[in-house]
Design a protein around this nucleic acid. Structure first.
Lengths: 105, 105
DNA sequence: TATTCTCATCGTATATTTACGATGAACGAT
DNA sequence: ATCGTTCATCGTAAATATACGATGAGAATA
């Protein structure tokens, strides 16, 4: 695509778009729900619940981690992933604000 | 990417992901805001407010139209685009539900 | 009818995303 | 020290997204 022009927009719009991008695949939506449901949050557990390979799931986790919606902590040979409620809360507010702003109400 | 596996997820997650995808570019976020601000909503007006070519803007409008967030009505040689508040309202609720569900609160 | 305006679509180039298997690093257990 | 487990990353292939200019269709206007 030649050259991206995303940076030419305002910071808030870019931020919301980034979060939206992280949520733009059903696997990532489901991962968030899984992390909310499970106590233990090994990658293997998540892989078992998705129709995707381990490496693909790992990529999806990276994308969610990139925007800060989740975090991973090393726990021996395993990695414990979990939600970051403060970031999710912030995202919730930003989306709510956007929709309200744009909803003529 | 070999073959997409998106259809293998549940319908609700796919729907939310689709809306998120439509919101995953700052140009499209801005277009929603522009449509909310302007009375007249010709494509040309939108193009003037974005750092993108007419054809690119047209593609972004198509994506928003595809998921139903906006609609376009022919008005002579022009096309009047406008928001679809009911769909936006629905999207707002779905995102709110997702974040609440996933926020441990 | 010819011209102009408005916009979608086509063709194209390049970037990014999605998917997988293979590999290797890090760690615990034997 | 070796082995098994766990996971990220690499390499790769194919699909999709982003961007543009060119073209053409449709409608109003001259």
């Amino acid at each position: 695509m030649a050259v991206s022009k995303k940076e030419e927009f305002n910071k808030t719009d870019i931020e919301v778009a980034e979060i939206a991008k992280a949520l733009s695949h059903p696997a990532r939506i489901k991962i968030l729900k899984i992390l909310n449901d499970l106590d233990s949050c090994m990658v293997g557990n998540i892989v078992d619940l998705l129709p995707l390979s381990q490496s693909t799931v790992s990529q999806h986790l990276s994308e969610l981690k990139r925007v800060g919606l989740i975090q991973g902590e090393i726990e021996g040979p395993k990695i414990c992933y979990c939600l970051k409620p403060d970031v999710i809360e912030k995202a919730k507010k930003e989306f709510s604000k956007l929709f309200t702003q744009v909803c003529k109400c």
